[in-house]
Every structure is written in C-alpha cells, then in structure tokens.
Simulated assay, not measured.
Amino acid sequence: MFNFKDLGIKPKENPFTGKKIDIDDILNEEIIVYDFEIKDSTKKSGTKYLTLQIEIDHKKRVVFTSGKTLMDVIEQIPHDKFPFKTIIRRNDKRLEFT
C-alpha cells in the first residue's frame, strides 16, 4: 500500500492570501490591487466573478465580486502596471475603479 506523501501530489497553490472581505467594506477606501482572476461562477450559471488580491490598512485581503464593469476595466490593465492604488466607488448600481 502507498503512503499519500509518496505519490508526489501537491495541492494547487492559491495565489491569493488573506481573509475574505466584502466589497461593501472597501467601497470609498483607498486600496492597493496586486492581482486578479476572472472565473466562471459555480453559483450562477452563465456568469463570471472577479477575485481581487488587495491590501487595505496594511493587510492583504481577498475580494470577490460579479461587477461586470470592474471585470471589463481590470482586463485592460497591463500586468506590468500592477500593483496600483485605487478607490472602488458605486456609481448608481455599477462598481467602478477611480
């Protein structure tokens, strides 16, 4: 019988660190965005969600959102421009980087 450790299987590394924080808790606050990932939602078929690696108050945090405007904009930012400072604001029902 094999020992699991001998199989050489490693879990996928999660590039995002820190506790989850709700998007509403960071609205209108200056944050630093380090990285992002857009994936298909497992909760709502046919939609996507955005994961942001941020820093707020000198702590690394992770934010999840389905904000389409944020996804559209962040995909246009070249990776060599990360990290960047921003404030996320609500404009009517849309979330926007400012």
Rank of each mutant, 00 (worst) to 15 (best):
F82S: 00
E75P: 01
P15C: 04
F4I: 12
G46K: 11
V73H: 08
K44Q: 15
L52F: 00
K68W: 05
K10L: 15
D6W: 04
E29D: 12
E29T: 09
N14S: 12
Q76A: 13
M1I: 08
M71L: 08
I31K: 04
I26A: 02
D72G: 11
D72A: 13
D35K: 13
D22F: 02
D92W: 07
R61G: 01
E29I: 04
G46E: 13
S45H: 09
K93T: 14
K44Y: 13
I87Q: 08
K68Y: 06
T47V: 08
I54P: 05
M71P: 12
D22W: 01
R94W: 10
T86K: 01
G46Q: 07
F36S: 06
K43W: 13
V62N: 00
P83Q: 10
D35Q: 11
N91M: 13
F4K: 08
K81G: 02
E55G: 06
T86W: 01
N14K: 11
G18E: 02
L50Y: 04
K60F: 10
I38H: 04
Y34M: 09
Y34Q: 09
V63L: 06
F84D: 09
F16S: 03
D35S: 14
D72V: 11
T69G: 09
T65N: 06
K10T: 14
E13N: 10
D35P: 01
L52E: 06
L50F: 00
I74M: 06
I32W: 05
R61W: 00
E29F: 11
I9W: 14
D57C: 02
N3E: 12
R94G: 03
F4E: 12
D22I: 05
E13I: 14
L7W: 05
H58Q: 15
I38D: 09
K43T: 14
P83L: 13
D6P: 02
L95M: 13
H79F: 11
D92P: 02
I26Y: 02
D57Y: 06
D80M: 02
K19V: 00
S66V: 00
K39E: 15
K85E: 09
S66K: 03
F64V: 06
R89I: 07
D80V: 08
D80G: 03
K68V: 08
F36V: 05
N28Y: 12
L50T: 03
E30A: 05
E55P: 01
H79P: 00
F82V: 05
I9V: 15
L7T: 05
R94E: 14
V33P: 02
N3A: 05
K81Q: 15
V62M: 04
F64A: 06
I26C: 06
K20Q: 04
K20P: 00
T98E: 06
S45C: 08
I77P: 02
I88A: 03
K12G: 09
K12I: 12
K10D: 07
Y49S: 12
K85M: 04
K44T: 15
G18P: 01
